[in-house]
């Protein structure tokens, strides 16, 4: 009786199922999948915003090889991954351990640590531009304790480092929550057994917590490395739209935005750079996941 009802429900093929899915499918098709195909096609043309363009083969990619700005962008985006990912894998984990115990007021601290995640990246960027200013709070504190003022926003490398610090600062709370959810599943018995064996807090962290959270750490590494390679807003706001005075802080996505938009935008060339962004992003994801599997075996 029950099974026949199920199969009757399943067997009916009215038009409405498609009507249900249509809005989502149309939006996804027109604004995600079509632009993706169009990016691939455009990468092999000399299309500009106002000029349809013609097929040029690999010319865009050959130009990339000789474009200093492209290599600067690739270098900065890669450095961003190297700088940001270790910090975002480790610091939020320590933070999660700090807020894990239900001591009085802990809910307040958890929420407070999450506020940078909620704020817009533009707000966060501008707050830090002011904090790191030559005459800003960080420098007046540094001067007060006798270190002296640091030109965070004038040196090419300090600019990039400052942007990384902002990315880490904004991401802490997000990954903290991911770790908190995972920590709730670490069996307490493991900790107790290790404690009985005389392991101290640091040793228990390394031998119990880290192995138990390994897959979560891989997830965080994957999420944060993909996000770091695609960095745009932080650097755009802190180093300026040109990526520093001579553009030496430009990231790949900044280059895409600068090259491909506006009425004179070189859509074809920007699409070639976009494809590089796409390929590296997917490669990063696969790399992290493969590293995970190798460790497992």
């Amino acid at each position: 009786m029950a099974t026949s009802t199920v199969s009757r429900v399943r067997r009916q093929l009215p038009t409405s199922p498609w009507l249900f899915a249509v809005p989502g499918l149309v939006v996804t098709g027109v604004f995600i999948l079509y632009p993706f195909v169009s990016t691939v096609v455009n990468a092999f043309t000399d299309r500009r915003t106002l000029i349809p363009g013609e097929f040029v083969g690999l010319a865009n990619f050959r130009e990339l090889l000789h474009d200093d700005m492209f290599w600067i962008g690739l270098r900065n985006s890669a450095l961003y991954v190297l700088g940001v990912v270790p910090a975002l894998v480790l610091l939020p984990l320590l933070l999660a351990l700090l807020v894990q115990k239900n001591i009085p007021g802990i809910a307040f601290f958890r929420s407070a640590f999450y506020t940078p995640v909620v704020a817009s990246i533009v707000v966060v960027g501008l707050i830090w531009v002011w904090l790191l200013d030559e005459r800003g709070l960080v420098n007046s504190l540094l001067e007060t304790i006798g270190v002296g003022r640091v030109g965070f926003l004038s040196d090419q490398w300090l600019l990039l480092l400052s942007a990384m610090a902002v990315t880490v600062w904004k991401g802490l709370g997000y990954y903290m929550i991911i770790y908190l959810a995972a920590l709730a599943h670490v069996p307490r018995e493991l900790h107790e057994a290790a404690a009985v064996d005389g392991a101290g807090a640091v040793r228990r962290f390394l031998t119990v917590t880290v192995p138990a959270l390994r897959s979560t750490m891989v997830l965080v590494a994957a999420l944060s490395s993909v996000a770091a390679f695609k960095v745009f807003s932080e650097v755009y706001l802190i180093a300026g739209p040109t990526g520093g005075p001579a553009g030496e802080d430009t990231t790949l996505v900044m280059l895409v935005q600068r090259t491909g938009t506006g009425l004179t935008g070189r859509v074809g060339y920007a699409s070639a750079i976009s494809l590089v962004v796409f390929v590296v992003t997917v490669a990063l994801m696969l790399l992290v996941l493969r590293a995970d599997r190798r460790e497992e075996s």
């Binding site: 996804t28 299309r47 915003t49 993909v226 491909g260």
Partner: peptide, 18 residues
Amino acid sequence: ILAMLVPAESIIIAQFTT
């Protein structure tokens, strides 16, 4: 699922021309 895997930044120019 495929749409979720495409990074928005890599298709943003084509979204603009669309």
